[in-house]
């Protein structure tokens, strides 16, 4: 409210007093959206946790069919994309407008690399008849329970991938805006909240990786 009397910034909506109030509001809005996302994924994680605790052997056996090296590489790729995303936010905050676009594009490329590796993994599952469906085959003690593991694997990683694709669409939409010089030191809310969203997607993977790939690795 201190700068309410100052000249109206073109990006300031009429129902806010100041850019600062607007930024705080928009950021809080994104955090509140992430609250709903936590609960959305939370429901799925709860389902996973329940069956993992009921069928530990079958889940461990099924889990050992996942390629740990690809999973680890993907984790690194995604964390790398989080770094480039936070650098894009940093570039916006320090007024380096061209660098925003560069880092956003880098984030996009790393996101695409993640999805590419994911596709290789999915194809691998298909070739080994581990995609639940008519061709599903699993040599192990409890094929029914392993089938549930793979269903949950596809549901969880699939939902995560959908979130990544949505994020990548927005990244692409933000690049021309950055190049036009729309994001300034004073006003860069869209970059900031896109960053929050992207890091959240990273967070989900940080938990998916150990839960899906690493459990029971020592026994399998």
């Amino acid at each position: 409210m201190s700068d309410a009397s100052a000249v109206q910034h073109p990006k300031l909506q009429h129902y806010f007093h100041s850019l600062r109030q607007q930024t705080e509001t928009v950021t809080l809005g994104m955090w509140m959206f992430l609250v709903t996302e936590v609960m959305f994924f939370g429901g799925l994680f709860a389902v996973y946790a329940l069956y993992r605790s009921q069928y530990p052997e079958a889940f461990a056996a099924a889990s050992s069919h996942l390629p740990i090296n690809l999973g680890a590489i993907n984790t690194a790729v995604l964390i790398g994309s989080s770094l480039t995303m936070v650098l894009a936010v940093w570039a916006a905050q320090t007024g380096r407008q061209k660098m925003i676009a560069v880092f956003l594009l880098l984030t996009f490329v790393l996101g695409a690399a993640f999805l590419g590796i994911k596709t290789v993994e999915y194809a691998d599952k298909w070739n080994h008849h581990l995609v639940p469906g008519p061709s599903f085959q699993f040599e192990g003690a409890d094929p029914g329970q392993a089938r549930m593991f793979f269903h949950l694997y596809f549901a969880m990683t699939g939902l995560h991938a959908v979130h990544m694709i949505i994020g990548m669409v927005f990244i692409l939409m933000w690049v021309p805006r950055a190049l036009r010089g729309e994001f300034t030191r004073e006003w860069n809310d869209p970059v900031e909240i896109l960053g929050l969203y992207w890091h959240f997607v990273d967070l989900v993977w940080i938990f998916l990786f150990p839960l899906l790939y690493l459990i029971g690795r020592h026994t399998g």
């Binding site: 996302e37 939370g42 429901g43 069956y51 469906g133 269903h151």
Partner: peptide, 20 residues
Amino acid sequence: PVLAITVLLVALERSFHIGV
């Protein structure tokens, strides 16, 4: 959001019999 994921799981269960 929990209702949303639940309805989604019902849809998956009904379409693909994911078994949960």
